[in-house]
Design a protein around this nucleic acid. Structure first.
Lengths: 123, 123
DNA sequence: ATAACTGTATTATATGACTAACACACTCCT
DNA sequence: AGGAGTGTGTTAGTCATATAATACAGTTAT
């Protein structure tokens, strides 16, 4: 069973994208496996204090991407093989790291300076 | 004179925030100095293909933060002392790096793995 | 079977971001 | 003085996001 926490939601970007990202991050990190039950639309809506339609939008997009499966009336489950896990993992790693590198370059840092800063701020 | 490039605009987030960020990044990187002329609302609007109201919103917020000055009828200029530059620089460096570190941790990477990935993707 | 829960769908409303098309007053240069 | 360019303000419209209040049919467990 995939568990959510309240602090999933930040004030950056659309809520439905944050939910999609949370699921993908869990899968990429290995915390969420294959054929795992995920919370119902209504349950997650109540937990996060968000409208059910917003949850539905996130789940619907995840299903279109083949990450979860939904049958009318039944619970929804994750649906990820090893290949998919690796694809999602690379997608997130490269997108986030690429965006950070771009920022550091635009701020005038070279590779060594950026790495040093990251190591200082890591904890 | 502060110069803009077309590639300033990406598809991530509101345009007015991207413009604010572009100015701040230029200041933090030292590419934009004090009392430098910035493009008029109309000129930047035409260059970026964006509505003048959107530029005005970005400039207005920058003025509220004390980064630029505007006088009705005259051109607008940057307004940053050494203290402000350092504040903006720390703000951007810590925000971006902190957000990247958070992502890497959520994906299950430790400090060494994250640094290695960043070095591989740097170029 | 029946009750509770599930996914799915519909209609309406509100807000923020962005665009469009103006209008006005001020500054600067010739 | 006059005109071009400037900052500023207003009104209206579109689109995406999110909410609110329902409704219906399928499944699951008792």
């Amino acid at each position: 069973m995939v568990t959510f926490e309240k602090f999933v939601l930040e004030d950056t970007g659309p809520i439905y994208l944050q939910i999609i990202r949370y699921i993908k991050q869990g899968i990429a990190a290995g915390a969420i496996g294959d054929q795992e039950e995920i919370p119902s639309r209504r349950a997650l809506s109540a937990l996060l204090g968000v409208n059910p339609n917003t949850i539905q939008k996130a789940y619907h997009l995840l299903e279109e991407e083949g990450v979860i499966t939904s049958r009318s009336g039944a619970k929804s489950y994750t649906c990820v093989n090893g290949e998919t896990v690796e694809r999602i993992r690379r997608e997130l790693l490269e997108r986030d790291t690429g965006s950070w590198i771009r920022s550091m370059k635009q701020l005038g840092l070279d590779k060594a300076e950026a790495v040093k800063l990251a190591e200082e701020l890591w904890d």
